[in-house]
């Protein structure tokens, strides 16, 4: 058989398989839409009305100003919770990463265990963690901190492990070959090498956690998320709108602060 007809056959086969893939996607969408009684047409049609209502009721006006001090203080609480859980998680994650990294692990078994643990922390959704801790700690700030801590721990352990393998491998090899003790290698070579990237990861997680803390707060009855829930359910939509504006401002402020810090560090 000639190679040209071979090629044609392969190409035909490929186009068939992509056609089948798209057909499957359309079917999947149709099935889900029927299952949830969702109609894209209705959703689109109701959009203008919804936005009109938003503009009328939710844009914070005079009435919202009274809620201002409360919003600011709860916002502060949420930001602090995120920072605290991230910093705590970063410290523990670094210790775990040293055990998980191919470059610095003292034993392969420890590395497998740590990687497994970190992956478990990461793969259980944050909201599920919040629910689990809700059962044991109740509706307190601790619940939110614990949930954010565990999720962040999973992500940062992974990120720090890869950073160590990335940037510290060569200097660790040099110090190991000179007979330096393990602890001295970690402190003298690994920490200074990974500092900029690790800091950058940590700042990124602070930003992410402020967003996530809001959602977790709705569940755990704390922070800005709780306040939103409260205003929303008591139909004080202007104050709820103020919460949203405050949240957006806070996230942007934190992000520009951390970008400035990154520039200073790197």
């Amino acid at each position: 058989m000639s190679s040209a007809s071979d090629l044609a056959r392969v190409l035909r086969k490929r186009s068939y398989s992509s056609l089948a893939f798209f057909a499957a996607l359309v079917l999947l969408y149709a099935a889900s839409a029927i299952g949830t009684r969702f109609s894209a047409a209705t959703a689109l049609a109701s959009a203008p009305k919804a936005f009109g209502w938003l503009a009328e009721n939710v844009v914070p006006g005079e009435r919202a100003l009274k809620a201002m001090p409360k919003v600011v203080s709860k916002l502060g609480e949420t930001v602090l919770v995120s920072v605290m859980s991230t910093v705590l998680a970063a410290a523990v994650a670094f210790a775990l990463a040293v055990f998980a990294s191919k470059t610095t692990r003292p034993s392969a078994a420890a590395a497998v265990a740590v990687r497994g643990f970190a992956s478990f922390c990461r793969n259980v959704p944050l909201v599920a963690w919040a629910m689990i801790f809700l059962l044991s700690f109740g509706q307190t700030v601790v619940t939110g901190i614990m949930a954010l801590f565990i999720g962040t721990l999973g992500y940062l352990t992974r990120a720090f492990t890869e950073t160590i393998d990335d940037v510290a491998e060569s200097s660790v090899e040099a110090l190991r070959s000179s007979g330096a003790p393990w602890l001295a290698i970690v402190v003298r070579a690994v920490i200074p090498s990974v500092m900029p990237q690790a800091t950058s990861w940590m700042l990124y997680m602070v930003e992410t956690n402020i967003r996530d803390a809001t959602l977790v707060g709705i569940l755990t009855g704390t922070g800005i998320g709780f306040l939103f829930d409260l205003y929303y359910k008591s139909m004080n939509f202007q104050a709820a709108g103020l919460v949203i504006v405050g949240l957006i401002v806070a996230v942007i402020a934190i992000e520009s602060t951390s970008n400035a810090l990154r520039r200073a560090f790197l």
């Binding site: 007979g179 330096a180 003790p181 393990w182 001295a184 003298r188």
Partner: peptide, 20 residues
């Protein structure tokens, strides 16, 4: 200077080495 001194870590205990 710090990098050159790393050559001495092999002669030091773990804690003394870690603290430089």
């Amino acid at each position: 200077a710090e990098n050159v001194l790393h050559g001495r870590l092999g002669y030091m205990g773990a804690v003394r080495g870690a603290l430089g």
